[in-house]
Design a protein around this nucleic acid. Structure first.
Length: 331
DNA sequence: TCGATTTGACCGAT
DNA sequence: ATCGGTCAAATCGA
């Protein structure tokens, strides 16, 4: 599933060395989440402190995970890119790019994360993902060994605002209704700052209408976030999606346009066992929307045991913890 | 007419 | 040599 993520060598710390600390951090986070789940008033002074503490615990543990040296000789890491050599390059003169002088490092630090998004089988939707941002397709490629081609998209505002965010969308081989969406880079355009839960940008709505016309009036909303290896975050990130847990500059939940495509909206969660399960999408926290698309966060773990979270279902998080802490999964 | 998409070709990495 | 990512001309559609 997460074949997009490359494995790298030469990291510094053994998983076994770090495991107790990681367990401790994640256990703390779990306990705090339990407090949230069972009645702690988030508006109270102590309640307000919970979220930062949870986040801190996650960041600590993930930071350790990202630095773990696997006994198998690799670690999980996303496609990356150096900050001084952006992924998006103007070619030729294609070769006349900022990669000159450091070509081998061209993807060292760009934030990237992959999500699995299920499209309704009956929708026949070619392009499944409306994540609240507007994308412009710039390429389409048949991938060797894959049954389905991959579409390449970049931010509509690349030229006007220099936004370097891109994404790659591809149907999975195992289930054609599931799309694997890989995000590269974060939005620096106005969309990133304007997007608020329940407030998709006007521009996006325009794009949506176009897509609907073209793809049998189907719209699938989803939210991104997840984790990435980045300069900024320095680790694979697991993000709880709530108004207080927004991934910086990552797409945020947007409401589905139910009146137009209610029947086509669907969502699922991928269980650690790699299958979908129904998702409790209705949430009071999604102000005005009862059908927020909820994709998976696909951790960059080679084993395929993905650690993901759902905003609204702590059980998933809890069930994922043992997997994440099972060192065999990380090898 | 203009913006978005399609698609063949180019280029770098492996 | 092959593959993946991107460019850019051609095409499409509002």
């Amino acid at each position: 599933m997460s074949t997009y993520f490359k494995m790298e060598k030469n990291t510094s710390m053994s998983l076994l060395d770090q495991k107790p600390l990681i367990v401790n951090q994640l256990t703390q986070a779990k306990e705090l989440l339990n407090q949230l789940q069972f009645g702690v008033d988030v508006t109270s002074t102590s309640g307000k402190l919970l979220l930062p503490r949870i986040l801190s615990s996650f960041e600590s543990s993930l930071s350790m995970l990202s630095g773990i040296k696997s006994e198998a000789g690799f670690q999980m890491t996303g496609l990356m890119q150096t900050a001084d050599s952006p992924l998006s390059v103007s070619r030729s003169p294609r070769s006349n790019s900022n990669l000159i002088g450091n070509p081998s490092k061209k993807r060292k630090t760009i934030p990237s994360w992959t999500e699995q998004v299920r499209a309704c089988e009956q929708s026949g939707l070619e392009e499944p993902v409306n994540d609240g941002y507007s994308w412009r397709k710039y390429g389409h490629k048949d991938i060797y060994g894959a049954k389905h081609p991959r579409g390449y998209y970049r931010c509509t505002y690349k030229n006007s605002q220099g936004c370097l965010a891109t994404r790659q969308v591809q149907r999975t081989d195992t289930d054609t209704s599931i799309f694997s969406v890989m995000y590269l880079g974060r939005h620096t355009c106005v969309q990133a700052s304007r997007l608020q839960p329940g407030q998709p940008p006007k521009k996006v709505e325009q794009h949506d209408k176009k897509r609907k016309r073209k793809s049998q009036e189907t719209l699938i909303n989803f939210q991104t976030g997840g984790h990435a290896n980045t300069n900024d975050y320095d680790t694979t990130q697991v993000v709880l999606r709530s108004p207080s847990f927004s991934f910086p500059s990552a797409p945020v939940p947007i409401p589905c346009q139910q009146k137009e495509s209610n029947s086509n909206i669907c969502s699922s969660h991928l269980t650690p066992d790699n299958h979908f399960m129904s998702s409790p999408l209705s949430s009071p926290s999604t102000s005005g929307s009862n059908s927020i698309f909820s994709p998976y966060r696909v951790n960059n773990i080679e084993s395929g045991h993905d650690l993901q979270t759902s905003d609204y279902d702590l059980c998933e998080f809890e069930s994922a913890l043992p997997l994440a802490l099972d060192s065999s999964d990380l090898y």
